[in-house]
Design a protein around this nucleic acid. Structure first.
Lengths: 293, 293
DNA sequence: AAGATTTTATACCAGCAGTCCAATTTTGTC
DNA sequence: GACAAAATTGGACTGCTGGTATAAAATCTT
């Protein structure tokens, strides 16, 4: 993204945080960013487009940060999980993004809503996955519901804390406490089988956000398609080749595939294909974690 | 309220539920309600005023319903609590009010936000109070935090359930499950003293929503009213007298008043007046902390 | 220096909330 | 039923919004 464009985005964020998205007019943005209307509409096709750029940027930063964070650490370690959640909440809060998310999520705009919803579902899924890693494979069938409950506790407590403009409000404590609560709740969920979210609906739901309809074969085909084009760097070609190879193995070595996917995402991060690549990898990731590869 | 005005409110609600508040123009309301612009602005001074009327109406209905519900029932009975929460959620959902609440709460409009916030805080306080009745006096200091957590769980689960447009989503089950979760959580809260919400801030916060409009004079008058009744114990009469005296001093010695208020709340804790007394004391507490006495 | 691109500044459109007001209809009262 | 008071209508008007269009100026490329 252009340097100046990025500056506009930053100014827009600060305005949105200060007075909400709906209450911020484009005129406001123009004045704060010291640009003309023409320039704004040269960068963004609409106000929504500007918000989308913000969300995009945030999601990009978050995934980048999180993937770097786990490297070489124990997936079973609760403290690592706490740290991961903390970091995410902190960067969201420091930028005021969580309030923006909430506003969009409860506003009328369907396009933006879908975007935020998508990242939230992915977030919940990620958390559910991490719960499985930390609490054990046996909670798998309740992991998503646990994640939903966990976020509920977290969000309401922080929201109320912020409302009370409590100075000594410490994220880390809430995160840790809630984690211990959720541990007990998961126990009860398993012991008494009292799920609320129907698992069938759940899979349908998640799939509608993640490209679950992908099968291994389809991914391979798509990668073959890609490779025909010549617009790729050597690195990009090689990593695609490696992924294809791994996908054609039986059984697939998850650890290897995981590593390759991470690298592939990195390798394409500056490319225009990044969106497509991300959908592919997240689809594969989902299949892998669901053991459906 | 006028019959016709009520019809307008109902039409407005249906539109707000269908397409959100922000996305509903006054023109839309005029057309659906088959009235002219002049009439609308004869009823309401603004669009916000119309929304406020809706909220007012809802709050009125809710309190009416809830007060009738408890008559002659055991305050300690968990099933009664479940029933109370269920009824409230059901009427809110059936009218689509909860979505309206959420939209307002996460929108930019400060006036409406304050209104919704107020009813939500009162709601939380009520729930906390009921938790004390059901789970026992010893959880008092954690009751509000428990209420916050409870609502968090409830809201997130129902939100996600609705998102998945799950047909077999049963409120009652969520409410019951969450109640058992909260039981465990309260246990942990008490056992390990890991509150997140600072109690001092909490009192300030709640007080800012309850009985702000109280002035010192009004409190004194109300206490005088009380003292005319003979239904009080000697202790209760004496503490009321002491509070009155202190309030008539200039300047008021905060430390003394604080102490007296605490004692008064204690002394009335078993009385039916406890709610009124609490409103009085929290109002005073707020004034005191705001140095407006 | 010439040409391409970006930026600016402004005028313009339609839709919005809200005001104002004269004309009309409904309603209450005798 | 007559008549005054009150409620309702509907349109003109203001000022703001998001968004379009465009000619002139500034900046970048080569």
């Amino acid at each position: 993204m252009n340097k100046r464009k990025k500056a506009v985005v930053d100014h827009a964020i600060s305005l949105f945080v200060e007075q909400g998205i709906a209450n911020t007019s484009i005129q406001d943005i123009l004045e704060r960013a010291s640009i003309s209307k023409g320039t704004f509409y040269n960068y963004f096709s609409s106000k929504n487009d500007c918000v989308e750029a913000i969300l995009e940027q945030a999601r990009y930063d978050a995934t980048l940060m999180r993937s770097g964070q786990m490297l070489g650490k124990d997936a079973k370690d609760r403290d690592v999980l706490v740290e991961q959640i903390t970091v995410l909440l902190l960067i969201n809060q420091s930028r005021g993004l969580d309030m923006i998310y909430e506003e969009i999520l409860h506003s009328g705009d369907k396009e933006l809503k879908k975007l935020v919803l998508k990242s939230r579902v992915l977030e919940l899924q990620w958390l559910g996955q991490r719960f499985i890693e930390v609490f054990g494979e046996e909670i798998r069938s309740h992991s998503f519901e646990a994640a939903v409950i966990y976020y509920g506790i977290l969000q309401h407590l922080t929201f109320t804390g912020r409302l009370m403009n409590q100075q000594d409000f410490k994220f880390e404590i809430v995160i840790k406490n809630a984690l211990r609560y959720i541990e007990k709740i998961v126990e009860m969920l398993m012991h008494e089988q009292t799920s609320v979210l129907n698992t069938d609906d759940l899979h349908k739901f998640i799939s509608s956000f993640v490209a679950i309809e992908l099968t291994r074969k389809e991914v391979v085909e798509q990668l073959e398609q890609f490779k025909k084009s010549n617009d790729f760097t050597k690195n990009q070609q090689e990593i695609m080749e490696a992924v294809t190879q791994e996908l054609e193995q039986q059984p697939i070595r998850n650890i290897v595939l995981e590593s390759l996917l991470r690298t592939m995402t990195n390798e394409f991060s500056d490319s225009e294909m990044i969106q497509v690549v991300k959908e592919l990898t997240s689809g594969l990731w989902y299949l892998m974690k669901q053991q459906k590869l």
